[in-house]
Design a protein around this nucleic acid. Structure first.
Lengths: 208, 208
DNA sequence: TCGCGACGTTAGTGACCGTTAACGCACGCC
DNA sequence: GGCGTGCGTTAACGGTCACTAACGTCGCGA
């Protein structure tokens, strides 16, 4: 390794697109496992086959990696949600189902990012944190609107709290045993979907 | 401050019982806010009015504080749950309600601990982590048993996944706007309770 | 061929941080 | 009155870590 300095040029790029994306993916995994402060740049570098300071050819610093990850997640969630709301016709219940489905896909496919999403937000520079929070807020409000259409009995504060709670529910996937205490991905997704819909429906049954 | 070295003896102990508990409470708050690695011992000391190394008169180290916090939480959750299961007569639905109520009380009253509970577990020494995980597992199994009594249609794997998901739902309280986007504590508790029951009920409606 | 930009490397630096050392004061007990 | 013990202080040490400096090597385009 140390005798072969140009390993990067002829190494078969493992699965990812380019170096940057590979770094981001490994950094996300490590941050989720041990926390932002618990991971050193040398570890991130080692995870992609280069060593420590080599990362600075791709990112301005460790903070920049986290920022790009969090902004990316929030942005993708929001744009995906907006797209679904716009494209799905049908009754508000179907739109809500689509939102739930999208969020579940995300939670199941990008567990490390889900973990980071509400865990390391405070480690960002002020400007980045504000941006991420704004994207998150828009995403929440998108859900709130759809939920209130689907369940007109819900007042706004209850709807918003319910949305936050259902996010917590859907984002619990990292806590489900890693390989498969559950049958399979499809069954897990279906179960989570049922849980979320059941929660919203119960929230709308105000008095009882 | 530096000219008055005995401030500790005559200072009115703010609200807590003794120094140890006060340190634990502030440490929990800080760990929850900025993460275990993100908080220095000097900050914890400052939060209780002493400075840095003075903490070592009460704890063996920073790790020991986190360990005591996490073991304490897990233990209290488990014993509280066991007590409720034993004491509540009535149908399994009532027992489940009692478990939910207890967990909600905990989530609303000890938000920092809830945050730590599933966030900083990996920062523990192996022995402590094993202990905490064992307590957590027992707590989960307690719930699984009650849930399956209340909803016999649920197979075990689904019941366990649902319990994890509902924990995620109930533990979402730190994400609800701090002072009160919600009416009040009682209303929040009632809403969370409804959401949780609705989720379980929906989980039990297997096919649809 | 030459040079230049992309992408690595190793060595070093300065800051931070957990922990220990050495010390001091106030109290309660004989 | 002496004295151990509880609880605090400041100073210093050792390790870790993000980041920079200086340098090397490939490959490509003029």
């Amino acid at each position: 390794m140390s005798t072969d300095a140009n390993a990067a040029t002829n190494a078969a790029r493992p699965p990812g697109r380019n170096r940057r994306d590979q770094i981001l993916r490994e950094a996300a995994r490590l941050f989720a496992e041990r926390g932002f402060h618990g991971v050193g740049v040398d570890e991130i570098g080692a995870a992609v086959g280069i060593s420590g300071p080599g990362l600075y050819r791709h990112f301005a610093g460790k903070d920049a990696m986290l920022a790009e990850l969090l902004v990316g997640i929030s942005g993708r969630l929001l744009t995906g949600g907006k797209r679904r709301v716009k494209e799905i016709p049908g009754p508000p219940g179907a739109v809500l189902d689509s939102l739930i489905e999208g969020h579940i896909d995300f939670a199941l496919d990008d567990r490390p990012l889900i973990t980071l999403h509400d865990r390391e937000l405070d480690r960002l520079r002020d400007s980045d944190r504000k941006l991420v929070r704004q994207l998150q807020r828009q995403y929440v409000e998108l859900w709130v609107g759809v939920v209130r259409e689907a369940y007109p009995g819900l007042v706004e504060s209850e709807a918003r709290a319910s949305v936050h709670a259902v996010f917590g529910l859907l984002n619990s996937t990292p806590h489900l045993g890693r390989p498969g205490s559950l049958p399979g991905r499809a069954a897990t997704a279906a179960l989570l979907h049922r849980l979320a819909r059941g929660a919203f429906a119960a929230a709308a049954d105000s008095g009882r």
